[in-house]
Nucleic acid binder design. Structure first.
Lengths: 235, 235
DNA sequence: TGTTGACCAGATTTCATAATTGGTCACGAG
DNA sequence: CTCGTGACCAATTATGAAATCTGGTCAACA
């Protein structure tokens, strides 16, 4: 069984809405299941008809938000294929975390957890954007270099640096966001993109393939959000 | 007054030795000034004849260690000028933190402090390696690109990423150090080095200038370690 | 003059008690 | 019978007061 009858998904969304709102307002720690249930206008036990644990509930929040963001990105891609150039969309993704309060709150919580112990719960939501299939595709179409050692690791480490350096060095605070994005873009362009940019035909082809991949990738993730029976990731 | 009479410096070094040893053994938090004084075979008050606060004492420990490392690096440079290529010495510097227990302990403490609040105390020790003069020189001799926006910030953020990503993602643990160094080297080479490597004449010239700069830079830092009267950085 | 350790205020740890909360499930409504 | 609920429980976490520790000072001493 992957889904239940009637308005179940609608209710799930109302719960996720409530969770998201309280998350932004109070932070992960201070949000209780009771709060969420109350704001959603249901009983506490009902929440557990949808997700096994508080953590899974918030993973669903994160995943829903991520999917929505990816879909936004796909739209932009349809409008402007050049957006697929890593030095364009990676800084854009970087920026987005600052823009979407839910993502911001969750990434802060992720850091807090990582600091102490197992944070992999929040981690696999990143799998969506960082899937092997996506990297392969980008490399194949000449949008990513094929000579980057440990591509996934290298790219993640680099992005993480820009993310975390914010809070580490006072110097970073003085720089405005624009300058930071430029810096990140520079590193991405030179370390991860081939010297030769792809032709616009290649780019268009890559875009349509990216769209296809994500339209293939997203549904199982979306199902996972709402399906009760689950222990780990889809696909 | 910059220095005191007699065996004062020798005693300072014994205190720093004691502090370093206890630091490695117990970690910053658990080391008390009493412990240090006892291990150094002196009274507690005497420690305060050398440094105003516990923090300044450990800054001195860090600075002494850093200077020693830089001098080691200068030696290597004399032997092999190619070591000045950023994609060589930056991963090497990265590695060194794992090798020297004192640096390791201090960088962990730095992260802990940064996590919470003002960590700039530990930060300015990095000024030694990251001084404007050094960057200028490297750029001037074609060892660093001249088109990197916010060079200091960008490079720091990148290196920080590789440093911190260790503890954030389980994937990073599986990769061995060699692979990580390769990744960092790749990013540095392509994002921060010019496409054309310098000629060996240029390189040699840069090396001798680097040596000159550091031999000029180090003494005031060394003085700072031992001089009681101080409020902030030398130079 | 150079050194020290007793001393102090403030920070940290301890420890017991109280309050909260994630998760369950027997029950009741429909 | 199905679905939803909130009282309930174990376990975690918050609280706060008392005890301990420790960075830093300074009067006394060698």
């Amino acid at each position: 069984m992957t889904e239940r009858a009637g308005q179940t998904v609608g209710r799930a969304d109302r719960i996720l809405d409530a969770a998201a709102e309280l998350l932004v307002r109070l932070g992960y720690r201070k949000v209780t299941i009771d709060d969420i249930a109350q704001l959603a206008g249901i009983g506490k036990g009902t929440v557990y008809l949808h997700w096994r644990t508080k953590q899974q509930l918030f993973e669903a929040v994160l995943l829903r938000e991520s999917i929505s963001y990816v879909e936004e990105l796909l739209d932009e891609l349809r409008r402007d294929p050049a957006m697929l150039l890593p030095h364009r969309f990676i800084p854009a993704s970087f920026l987005i975390v600052d823009r979407r309060p839910v993502l911001r709150a969750l990434s802060e919580e992720y850091l807090r957890q990582a600091q102490s112990r197992s944070a992999d719960a929040f981690l696999h939501s990143q799998e969506l954007l960082a899937s092997e299939r996506f990297y392969d595709l980008m490399t194949r179409h000449g949008l990513l270099r094929d000579d980057v050692p440990n591509l996934a690791y290298t790219l993640s480490a680099t992005m993480t640096g820009f993310h975390l350096y914010q809070d580490l060095d006072p110097m970073a605070v003085q720089l405005d966001m624009r300058a930071k994005l430029d810096s990140l873009a520079h590193v991405v362009r030179h370390a991860f993109e081939p010297a030769e940019p792809p032709t616009s035909e290649e780019l268009a082809k890559a875009v349509s393939e990216v769209i296809a991949v994500f339209e293939d990738l997203i549904p199982p993730y979306r199902t996972w959000i709402y399906a009760y029976e689950r222990t780990h990731e889809p696909g």
